[in-house]
């Protein structure tokens, strides 16, 4: 509980233990994702490669949620809807202009970032459950809206949707196959985590830490509270939008029914379970969100039984692991490390 309070107060905990490992330690996530990008395509078959691609994409979404939660103490229950926004724009751009995938990816990210800035507006006046519910309402509204206007399928007009069989969104030229696309996603995600890291260690991170402690003292210290809150939401929205564009590229289409508000709540819940205070908490969250259900499905377990297991495990993890599974894991490792030399 003590440690949790320390985290809640916004103190930045150094990731690296020793000073020599500091530089390397800082880039552990990037190393991890790069290794995964190179090795995993050789180790797993087509099914698990697809599943792991989804895991990678949702890890970025979970990281975008964890960023807001960890740094600003804000809860966004609209991240899956923001993914939908990013995915919509990426699809629309891809079908309308035939530009390279990277341009569509950035366009999706930037659009979702702008929507994130709009969500920051209520965050200037509210926090806690109220803010969370406002974002949930936004996600609910998006779910209805997208059901009516639909994701672009290669049609004309503003919405890019026509009632006919779908035209698939092209993948990046260097990542046409499933294996290459997996590695591509991993690289994008490594950059995403780097972007978060750079922000947390820079000016924005210091501003967020002060805001989290007390907005009054942040203001007294000359921190522009409005700016940094909007900045946080914009960054979080951008990352979710990029994840949405990656998802669009993965399936080469998006389906409106994939973005109900309950999914946004679900991925937030799993981010808390995974642990918002460690970078790999987001990876754990994504594994829980996509790998575990796929595993249960592959075992031939009834989808409804999987729901029961999933729901109960969620409750159990929330009660027993207040710092998330990543917190438990890292505490366990630290204890081992401390005991190590004596043994």
């Amino acid at each position: 509980m003590q440690a949790a309070t320390k985290h809640l107060s916004g103190a930045v905990e150094p990731d690296a233990v020793s000073s020599t490992g500091f530089v390397l330690g800082r880039y552990v996530p990037q190393l991890f994702f790069t290794c995964a990008a190179i090795l995993l395509p050789f180790l797993v078959n087509a099914l698990w490669l697809k599943v792991l691609t989804a895991v990678a994409i949702y890890a970025l979404t979970a990281a975008s949620i964890a960023l807001l939660y960890r740094r600003l103490g804000l809860v966004s229950l609209a991240q899956v809807a923001l993914m939908g926004c990013g995915g919509w724009v990426a699809l629309r751009f891809a079908h309308a202009f035939g530009l390279p995938f990277e341009v569509n990816l950035m366009a999706g990210g930037i659009f979702a970032g702008l929507i994130g800035m709009i969500l920051a507006y209520p965050a200037l006046r509210m926090r806690g459950l109220y803010l969370a519910l406002i974002t949930l309402m936004a996600a609910g509204g998006f779910g209805i809206l997208i059901n009516v206007i639909q994701f672009p399928n290669g049609g004309g007009g503003l919405t890019g949707f026509e009632v006919r069989a779908i035209t698939y969104m092209p993948r990046p030229v260097i990542a046409i196959s499933d294996a290459a696309y997996f590695s591509y996603c991993m690289v994008v995600i490594a950059f995403g985590f780097l972007l978060i890291d750079v922000h947390e260690r820079g000016r924005a991170g210091r501003g967020w830490a002060l805001i989290r402690k007390s907005e009054a003292s942040a203001m007294a210290a000359g921190v522009n509270v409005t700016l940094y809150k909007v900045w946080g939401f914009a960054l979080s929205g951008f990352l979710a939008g990029v994840a949405g564009a990656l998802l669009a590229g993965n399936l080469q289409l998006l389906d409106a029914r994939s973005f109900p508000p309950a999914e946004s709540v679900m991925i937030f819940a799993l981010t808390v379970v995974g642990g918002a205070w460690h970078w790999y908490g987001a990876v754990i969250a994504a594994l829980l969100y996509r790998l575990v259900p796929a595993f249960l499905n592959d075992l031939g377990l009834d989808g409804n039984a999987a729901y029961i297991i999933f729901g109960l495990a969620l409750i159990h993890a929330l009660i027993t692991a207040p710092k998330g599974l990543a917190g438990q894991l890292s505490d366990g490792l630290k204890r081992l490390a401390r005991r190590g030399p004596n043994a």
Partner: peptide
């Protein structure tokens, strides 16, 4: 609140 969501999913599955 999100713990109740877990309960909702378990109930729905049941």
């Amino acid at each position: 609140a999100i713990a109740t969501l877990g309960f909702a999913l378990a109930l729905l599955g049941t």
